[in-house]
């Protein structure tokens, strides 16, 4: 008895189907990834809570952009965005302990442990409101201690030091972002150098590792570097600047 040969399904059209799917996906999606300058907005404050704390002139690096997009840094007019880098580096490191630049804090293991011990001993006696305050301070010192363990004793700007961007209402968005970008570039150059020295890797490369691929070690390194060179940029409320 002649057995009938099993007939094969013709698979040649699967390629066509797959091509159509491919074409659809290519058209409907985009390869472009969303990128930009990240920022964190300050918490909402009550209007009547006003009175910003008095700040020492030396703790502020004032960058001002007027309505014609002219730039003033530390009261000097007609600077270019490229000058910002230099000012930021000087401001964040204060290499000669100058009186005009922010006071630098020395951070090492001993200081961290001392402060944590003092805070902990105060904790018991403190009132309920103060307790929350003390806990957050202990956390801050513990973060510094972690940083010291990774990068060794370091010098950092005191916590009041801030880079302030002042602008006019009609300053263009592009100029503002250019200024922000240059500040970050000054900061990142410092961070890169430190990371290169301590870990043999650039800070930017650490940061570029995709969020879900970062190991705990990567995260700890990023945190430590940020302790040494914190990003403290504020936007002052717009006012009319000539």
């Amino acid at each position: 008895m002649a057995r009938r040969k099993l007939q094969e399904v013709d698979a040649s059209s699967i390629a066509d189907i797959a091509f159509i799917l491919l074409a659809f996906i290519i058209i409907a999606t985009t390869l472009e990834k969303e990128s930009g300058l990240p920022a964190v907005l300050p918490q909402k404050t009550d209007k009547d809570q006003i009175k910003p704390p008095e700040v020492n002139e030396r703790n502020i690096l004032e960058i001002l952009v007027n309505k014609d997009n002219r730039l003033m840094i530390e009261k000097e007019w007609d600077k270019t965005p490229d000058d910002i880098n230099e000012y930021v580096v000087e401001f964040m490191t204060n290499p000669e302990n100058s009186e005009a630049l922010p006071r630098m804090d020395e951070v090492n293991e001993q200081i961290c442990k001392q402060n944590i011990a003092i805070l902990k001993s105060n904790y018991e006696a403190a009132s309920l409101i103060e307790k929350g305050n003390i806990t957050s301070q202990i956390e801050k010192w513990e973060a510094k201690l972690e940083a010291v363990k990774l990068v060794g004793p370091y010098r950092t700007v005191n916590k009041a030091a801030t880079i302030a961007i002042q602008y006019d209402k009609s300053t263009s968005y592009g100029t503002y972002l250019a200024v922000r970008d240059k500040i970050m570039s000054g900061l990142n150059s410092l961070r890169d150098d430190l990371a290169m020295e301590k870990f043999g890797v650039k800070y930017g490369d650490l940061e570029r590792i995709r969020a879900n691929k970062k190991t705990d070690e990567d995260k700890a390194m990023i945190k430590a570097i940020r302790q040494v060179y914190p990003q403290k940029i504020i936007k002052l409320p717009a006012k009319n600047v000539q």
């Binding site: 964190v40 918490q43 972002l177």
Partner: peptide, 29 residues
């Protein structure tokens, strides 16, 4: 837009975002 938009607009947007506690932002570039 880098030229058409001025900081007044950005301020207004950010103020609204602060009202709803959406504090993590990104300036797209």
């Amino acid at each position: 837009d880098r030229d058409d938009v001025d900081m007044d607009v950005i301020d207004k947007i950010e103020n609204e975002l602060r009202e709803v506690e959406a504090l993590r932002i990104n300036y797209s570039t």
